[in-house]
Structures are given as structure tokens and as C-alpha cells.
Nucleic acid binder design. Structure first.
Lengths: 299, 299
DNA sequence: CTCATTCTCTGACTAAGGTCAGAGAATGAC
DNA sequence: GTCATTCTCTGACCTTAGTCAGAGAATGAG
């Protein structure tokens, strides 16, 4: 990363903080303090009542602080509190009619501010700006995704594996059965015999990739998957690169993988990433192509 | 402007506030409160001592508040205060050696945060992101520019006119003398006979454009200029459009202007904006092309 | 029934950012 | 020299955001 790039990010931060950050903290709040506005926002996301506990977790607030925020909103008649029907320790909260109106007002304010930002620009420039914003947003989101090695039994890992299997079952003409696929046991993707990476965005799993590390043999990538909603962020490439790097660090001289002919995007990714097609090195029933890349060839 | 564009701006605000706004307020501050950090930043921009009054204006702070901030920094040995040599009511402030070190520390922190933001991305994506950021920044800056009608004698207007003349003098092989140019007197660009628009960014003049409004005749655009540092923001187009609109509102059926052959970018702008070349309609000594646009043809 | 736990609420407290009304010193116009 | 003005500083005050240590009610395990 160059010094110019770091400088650009900082300049960008300054400019946008001035024009947008301020918007968020003060003007969105408008007449209402930011904490209250944020809460109002969170509560309005759907109609139904919310457990106070859940709201607290989601916004990461102190229980005393949330309690006071709720009381302020209740005092203004914007929310109604009621004990949870099944557990009377828990309280539930929902927006009143006035609360929904207030939320709509905040919404309009936000829209107006966004519109005022665009207003001085010509239609062409507006399109240019919103396109560039979309790009920045997409790439910032991509940069927010974390990759962590997890146990394959971890709920987030298990979620990915189930989603992976479900998607392949849909995609393959012959269906897909995780149990029939060549992966002797989950042990193979767990230290010390391998590892399993999970990509998460705001704590939500959005992708995964497994690595088998047989001693004295090429490493093998399995179960590489990215959730459809998170595609286009370069996540598959990042997972692949991270797995390759870990394989190399583990001393593997090459990385291998196999893939199904229906997965054209994946096949393209492997070729673009420097993999070359090799003869079948296993009996995977769902594979049509086998690839290999020497760890020395890595970018 | 479409609903989708407004939505995009708002989504963008949310994402960047999360990733960058927070960065700015809390992490940039680090151990130091935001107000102090901001002040430290401002003071470090150049070596010399600053008048407290100037700093206050530039940061838009209350005098009591700034006084306290300064005292806090002074207490930590980061700034030194001294009375102004010419006016002992005014105090000047400069960073001490320790202050410069502290500022460098904040700087590093900021750099590190920016770098951490880019780190998870591949080099290609990094370039994509910083390019998109540059574009957003440029367009947000453009959207921040205000256009105000000012008296031609207003300091900001006078600055623009001087800069305009100086630039043309440099550009034209034959030189340029504002007095020799066809513009009988400044009255012509002042209500009710005309008007003079000044474009300002953060209060600094960055461009201008004059309009003559002779009764019962086409309006005439004069002195259209954009400061070199502010070019590429679409400012000339905006000034032009605003002048045309004011001409139309004033009842002019057409807008005319003349230009020098050395000003190729301007000539291109006029053609692209729907102006057609017409025979000379005046004796402007510095003109080689004459243009006209009917107000009915405006976009 | 007992007891540890869970959930909410209250009171006490802190830090930061900020506003407002003067006080006091210096200055400039006359 | 007088007097209005300018500039800084001080004290009093306010709001927001947030933390922390319990108290008190309800719940679930034993």
C-alpha cells in the first residue's frame, strides 16, 4: 500500500466527516439527541414489539443507559413498554403511533439532507457521485469482513457448510449430498490436520473455506463458498489467498483443489489465480476439474 | 434526482460513518479528547505562532471554550502562549517541541487507521477504493461550493477579477489589460444593470461570472473564471447555468458572450453547453469568437 | 422451598463539548 | 484624557453520552 493511498483515505475521511458525519450525528438527530434517534430507528425496523434485552445487545448499550433512553421516549409518548408475556422480568417495547410519526420525520430529515447534498450538482455529476459512493461503500464493506479460523462445529462454520451444501444441491443436476462427497470426517478440517476459515461481516457468517494439510503432501482446499448476498466483494479471492498463505506457512509445496463443471465462476477464479488444471488426484464423485498451484507461484 | 440516488447517499453515510466517522471522533483522539486533538491539528499546520482569534474563527469555537482547551494543552506542555507583539490584547499560540511530537503521534495513529482500512484488500481493490474515494471527495467538494451574487467591489469579487486579469495577461500572447477590455464600468455588473456571481468554497473565492442585463437586449456573460485549483469540479458549467437561469428569469430571450482563441477549454464548454457561434456583436479587442444561446434552448 | 441467576431500573458519578454573561486589560478614535 | 471597542479569560451553567454498583422482582434448577 502506498503513502498516496493512505493520504487519500485520510483526505476522504476529513471531507466526508465534514459533509456527512456531521449530518449523521447532529442533523439526523435534529431536535432529538443522537442516542434517542438511534434507538427510535432500531425499534422501527419492523412493526412488532422488541425485547429490551435484544435491543440492548444489538446496539451495544449499557442497561442503565438504555433504561433512561426508553423512559425519555416513553415520556414523550413515542414508545410503549410492556412486560414480556412469557417472562415478566423481560420488558418489551414498541413504537406508538406518535413514535412512528417521529421516526418518519427523522427519515424525511435524512432524505432532505441527502437531497441537499446532491442538489448543487448537475444530473450527470449526481450519477457520477452516487456511483462512486456505491463503489466506496461496497469496498469498505469488503474491507470490514474478517477471516477467522473456526472449528467446523462452530455455529457460524456449520451455518456456512449447510448453506454450501444447500446451494450445491440446487445447482448440480445430480443433486448434492455432503455425506457422499469426499471428506472423510470433520477432523480433516480441524487442527492439526487442517483448518476452516469463516468470513464474517458484522459478526454474521458470509463465507468459508477449508484446508486439508496432509503431512508431506500438497494442501487441499475444500468447501470454498461465499454467500450470494456477499458476492462481488472479492471475498472468494481473499479466502483463497488466505488459505494458500496458510498452506505455504505450513510448509506445503503446492495447493490442490477440485471443482464441479457447474461452478463456472469458481473455475474462472482458480484459473485467474494461477491454478493449472491437472489430472484427477482423487475420486471426488462431484468433481470434473482438478487444479494445482505451486506455493512458489504465489503473488 | 431519483429516490435511488437519495437512498444511495444515505446508505453511504451510514457505512462511512461507521467505518470512518467513528475513526475520526474516537481513535484519532486516542488518549486525547477530540476538541484538543482538533486544535493540536490546526496549530501544527505550519510552524509559526497563530493568533488565538484567528484559530477561533477558523475552528468556529466559543472564546471561553477555546480558552479552556488552550489551557489544558498548555498544562500538558504541548503549546506555549504569548501576547501578540503589536497588540497585547491578542494572544498567540504555538506548538512546543512536545506538542509537535504529540501531533506526530496523532498523525501516525490516523495513518495506521487508514492503513488498517486498506489492509484487508488486494492491491487492485485498494486502487479501486482510493480512486472511488478521490472521486467522491472531488464531487462532495464541488457540491460544497456556493454561488452568491456579490457587489463587484466586494473583496471576494475583487480578488476574482484581479486573478482573472492576471491569468489572461499570462495566457494571451498580446497580454491583457482589464481597463482596455470592453466593460464600460463596474456599474454594468451591479444591480439593476447586471450582476456578479462569486463561487466560494469554505468561504474562499474560487470562481466568478458576471452578467450584463441590458433592457430589451440579450444578456451578456462576462468575466467567467474558475481558480486553477478548483477546476475539474464542473464549476464553470455551474456558474454558466446559474447565469443563464438568472438571465432567463430577468426576461432575456438570449445569452451572448465573447471569448479569446487562446481559451480553448472555455470555447469547448460554450459549444457543449448549446451555444452557437455568431458574428461579432461587439468590438471587444480581446475576442475572437462570439456565441449566443436562446434562453428557450436551455436544458 | 431455597438459592443462584437473569433482567430491569435507580442513584451516583464522570467526561466531554458547549453556551452565556460579564470582568479586566489593551487599544484606537476623538 | 475619555470612551467605546476588541480580545481573552473566568465562573456558572447545561446537555449528552456513558459507566458502575447495587436493589428488587421474576425465574429456574435443585
Amino acid at each position: 500500500m502506498t503513502k498516496e493511498q493512505v493520504e487519500q483515505v485520510r483526505r476522504f475521511s476529513r471531507t466526508t466527516a465534514e459533509r456527512i458525519g456531521v449530518l449523521h450525528e447532529h442533523h439526523l438527530g435534529g431536535t432529538r439527541p443522537y442516542g434517542q434517534a438511534r434507538l427510535l430507528w432500531q425499534l422501527g425496523d419492523d412493526g412488532g414489539p422488541h425485547d429490551v434485552r435484544t435491543v440492548r445487545d444489538r446496539l451495544g448499550l449499557d442497561s442503565g443507559y438504555l433504561s433512561r433512553l426508553l423512559r425519555a421516549l416513553e415520556g414523550d409518548g413515542l414508545v410503549a413498554l410492556a412486560p414480556h408475556p412469557d417472562d415478566r422480568r423481560v420488558r418489551t417495547v414498541r413504537l406508538t403511533e406518535a413514535g412512528r410519526r417521529e421516526r418518519a420525520r427523522l427519515d424525511e430529515r435524512s432524505d432532505a439532507h441527502a437531497a441537499a447534498l446532491l442538489a448543487p450538482l448537475s444530473p450527470d455529476r449526481r450519477t457520477e457521485l452516487t456511483d462512486a459512493m456505491a463503489k466506496v461503500e461496497r469496498l469498505l464493506t469488503a474491507a470490514t469482513v474478517t477471516l477467522d479460523p473456526l472449528d467446523p462445529d462452530h455455529p457460524d462454520a456449520a451455518y456456512c457448510l449447510r448453506a454450501y451444501a444447500a446451494e450445491l444441491a440446487e445447482l448440480f443436476a445430480e443433486g448434492f449430498d455432503l455425506a457422499a462427497s469426499l471428506l472423510p470426517d470433520p477432523e480433516a478440517l480441524r487442527a492439526p490436520r487442517g483448518l476452516f476459515l469463516v468470513a464474517r461481516l458484522h459478526g454474521e457468517p458470509v463465507g468459508c473455506g477449508g484446508l486439508k494439510l496432509p503431512p508431506g503432501a500438497p494442501a487441499e482446499i475444500k468447501r470454498l463458498w461465499v454467500r450470494p448476498s456477499a458476492r462481488g466483494l472479492g471475498l472468494a479471492r481473499r479466502l483463497l489467498a488466505e488459505l494458500e498463505e496458510r498452506a505455504a506457512r505450513h510448509g506445503a509445496g503446492a495447493v490442490r483443489l477440485d471443482t464441479h463443471r457447474a461452478l463456472t465462476a469458481a473455475t474462472r477464479l482458480y484459473r485467474e489465480s494461477g491454478y493449472t488444471e491437472v489430472p484427477a488426484f482423487n475420486d471426488e464423485p462431484y468433481a470434473h476439474h482438478w487444479f494445482e498451484k505451486r506455493t512458489g507461484d504465489m503473488a
